[in-house]
Nucleic acid binder design. Structure first.
Length: 192
DNA sequence: TAGCAGATACCTT
DNA sequence: AAGGTATCTGCTA
């Protein structure tokens, strides 16, 4: 406890933070327009009281995260601490990591692929401890609207707007409220 | 084509 | 053991 969570301010006013990253990998990460909320959220994800002081790896994670935020291709090297999530959530996250940049998939398609219920997949996606590293913003409702997104543990209009912008920066075509159906990617399909 | 109910399965406390 | 979802489908009109 005690020590500050690493956080940097981006040029559009967004704060980024990571829970300590060490040899085991990245514990959790998040971003928010509010530094206070960001720190509070990250601390809430640290019940075991990991040392939060900055490390070389947490600095690396932070800069990788900012690159992803700007829609750059994923060349991240940081490992994730899979032990921190349930087996269910791990399988959902691993499918999300396969969604190509510039594509989206739906809760229902993931559900069908993993043989889970779509609502359950929603909770699994929502609990993603590593937004951007695990691109949960690429999961949208079957209606191909933007859908929901939470920042700092809370659903918000800001979150939905951030989700839309992330998709746009990755090259997903969106006209009005709907995503171009060309952008849909199906898990497990050999090649699209 | 939009809106709504019911089904659903897995999470958290 | 119960209550809460970042959903989907199929039925209405």
């Amino acid at each position: 406890m005690g020590k500050l969570t690493l956080a940097l301010k981006n040029d559009d006013g967004t704060w980024f933070g990571v829970l300590n990253s060490n040899k085991d990998g990245l514990a959790a990460a998040s971003f928010s327009p509010s530094k206070v909320k960001l720190e509070k959220h990250l601390r809430s994800r640290n019940p075991e009281g990991l040392d939060l002081s900055p490390t070389m790896q947490s600095k690396t994670a932070l800069s990788e995260m900012i690159n992803l935020y700007h829609g750059k291709p994923d060349d991240t090297k940081i490992n994730l601490q899979w032990k921190r999530v349930s087996r269910f959530q791990e399988s959902v996250c691993k499918v999300m990591r396969e969604i190509p940049r510039g594509k989206v998939t739906s809760y229902g398609l993931i559900a069908k692929y993993l043989k889970y219920g779509p609502r359950a997949v929603g909770t699994g996606v929502a609990g993603n401890p590593w937004p951007l590293f695990v691109p949960c913003h690429r999961v949208v409702p079957a209606s191909l609207e933007i859908g929901n997104y939470s920042i700092g543990g809370h659903l918000s209009l800001y979150g939905c707007e951030a989700k839309r912008q992330l998709l746009e920066r990755e090259g997903v075509k969106i006209d009005g409220e709907r995503i171009d159906s060309e952008a849909v990617w199906t898990p497990g399909k050999a090649h699209q």
